[in-house]
Design a binder for these strands. Structure first.
Lengths: 335, 335
DNA sequence: GTGAAAGCGCTAACAG
DNA sequence: CTGTTAGCGCTTTCAC
């Protein structure tokens, strides 16, 4: 691969001049510029970004830490960041880390090695104090989908508890009295917080929650199927299910229908996230919209600002909103 | 951010020694190693990957060029590459380029600037000769989802024509006589090739294809909806649709059902790709399996080998296979 | 085992 | 406008 020196030699100028035309920076005579440009094209010169990053101390890449790309939720997240990156002529460096503190830390570390100025991190398992230390070290680090009070202005997060409340109110407004919950088996805050908001709303209609009506599985399509089976197997009556996310909701519907239950006439289902797909499921899924792409853009923009030393102490809290579609309806007569 | 010099100074050794322990490379006395390690931990040293890449001339990142992350098909592709990257302790550098020659080229160029040793490129619009030149320049470049004879052993692709044939045979075996085709509006080979295979199979049952029964739209859920509407609007009789991909197929089903048509009893639908979601649509989608993740892994592995100078002249052609689910059935009596 | 020194490709003063 | 030069942080001979 040719270097700046090769170009300089061939164009009979100094490397400084070549550098100038590459960065179309300082004043270079049109003539010189043209001839350098020509040489570059001829020998197929491509500047070395690593060398450039080394001397300028900036990598012009935005790092993203997510668990996994196949989950459409995280794909949307990455996509939001990517859009901002493109807008700013930066690249996306993806670092996937399973849901474990060690793996998440490892993923962040990779980004640091690359001297990512800007990073959007989805971390569920790293302890707050560790994250705090990291945030101190890396000005352009922003947390998404997590809230830590001490760095509230560097968190872009969703009010999960409110989401739970909204779901509860919606289901209760449809006269449901026995509501099950399908939850994620991962030990992270979100499913708990959603359940908390949900449960706390129940007494308003003199309902109570029952731990027996909760099933924990992997937060994906398959997990939803299994969770629904488990719920069914218990033989307890319920007319609605609040499901941790859309993927599980759709999996659950699949199981339910395969077992002869009609959604929503027999059982109502409400999901969470409003991934693209939810609008196309049959029945179309009622869910809580989690504007993750928008949030990811916000996070990327924020990280960009922070990396430049700009600070603001705004909070970036988002509230999910109810998207009523077809998977919820008035409760069937209680069995 | 601290450097190797800081560590050397604090540990009272030379930078060479620090470098050695970082790469836990040569022989360093246990004592020295321990003390260096301690200093590194104390001051929070993280090696600079850019500097390292500069001197070693290798970036330890795998580059991926795809149009877009929100499409689950491409997310799976990226995920496959990511898995290989993780296995080899490398990072994923993502370069998204819309479907245009210029934008794809730009995306590849970014990877070259970063001196990506290894890259998996999904390019539909760059001309073969340009790609050939690029491939010559970059030994670790592999094309996915595209076939160029001159570099056949560096292409990992699917036989789309055969896919079309399989779809046609399946539908004909169910006695369908009037079959529509929902296609992508992008001017790329795939939809054409699939249609070609499909059409060429028709005469076997004395059927002919009709350009009137083809609708072109964006290859996503929304596009499928619109395409189905267009087809319906024509008022021509058909009992089955061969759809360019699963996303469009699901969109089409949505439109069809909203218009009172039952799938598959009124109209059969067969998709293409077998994205995760297809198994959970209602009705469950009959489709052609495109093992993209597996292919992406293969491509990444191949690129890795090539970058090391290992060559083999195997071909990497994949054949889609029919996944029968619920969206196709015996043709309704022709109207 | 360990250190000194050269240099990867580039940018950014500083001269002229 | 253009060239010289000093590093950026690191790896890698080559001595000792």
């Amino acid at each position: 691969m040719s270097t700046i020196k090769d170009v300089a030699r061939a164009a009979r100028v100094s490397i400084a001049t070549v550098s100038r035309v590459v960065n179309n920076d300082a004043k270079v005579s049109d003539k010189t510029r043209a001839s350098v440009l020509k040489v570059m094209a001829d020998i197929g010169y491509t500047p070395n970004a690593n060398a450039r990053a080394l001397v300028t101390q900036k990598s012009s890449t935005i790092g993203v830490v997510i668990p996994d790309l196949t989950d459409p939720f995280f794909a949307s997240l990455a996509n939001g960041v990517d859009q901002v990156a493109r807008q700013h002529h930066m690249q996306l460096l993806l670092s996937t880390g399973q849901i474990s503190a060690e793996s998440e830390l490892q993923a962040i570390n990779v980004l640091i090695e690359r001297r990512c100025d800007v990073m959007v991190v989805h971390s569920k398992k790293i302890k707050a104090e560790v994250l705090l230390k990291l945030a101190e070290k890396i000005p352009g680090l922003v947390l998404i989908d997590r809230y830590i009070a001490a760095i509230a202005h560097r968190c872009v997060w969703l009010d999960n508890e409110e989401g739970g409340r909204i779901a509860a109110r919606h289901l209760m407004s449809l006269s449901h009295q026995h509501i099950a919950y399908i939850s994620s088996k991962y030990e992270i805050d979100d499913p708990l917080t959603r359940l908390k908001g949900f449960t706390e709303q129940l007494p308003q209609q003199h309902l109570t929650s029952s731990p027996d009506l909760i099933a924990y599985e992997e937060p994906n399509l398959r997990g939803g199927e299994i969770a629904a089976q488990k719920l069914l197997a218990k033989g307890l009556p319920f007319t609605a299910i609040f499901v941790y996310n859309d993927a599980m909701a759709i999996g659950a519907i699949s199981t339910l229908e395969d077992n002869g239950f009609k959604v929503p006439s027999d059982i109502s289902i409400i999901g969470f996230d409003d991934v693209l797909f939810s609008r196309y499921s049959r029945p179309k899924l009622t869910t809580l919209r989690y504007p993750i792409e928008q949030m990811a853009k916000k996070a990327a923009l924020l990280a960009l600002q922070l990396s430049k030393g700009e600070v603001s102490d705004e909070e970036h809290k988002y509230i999910p909103n109810l998207v009523k579609r077809e998977s919820t309806a008035i409760a069937a007569t209680t069995k």
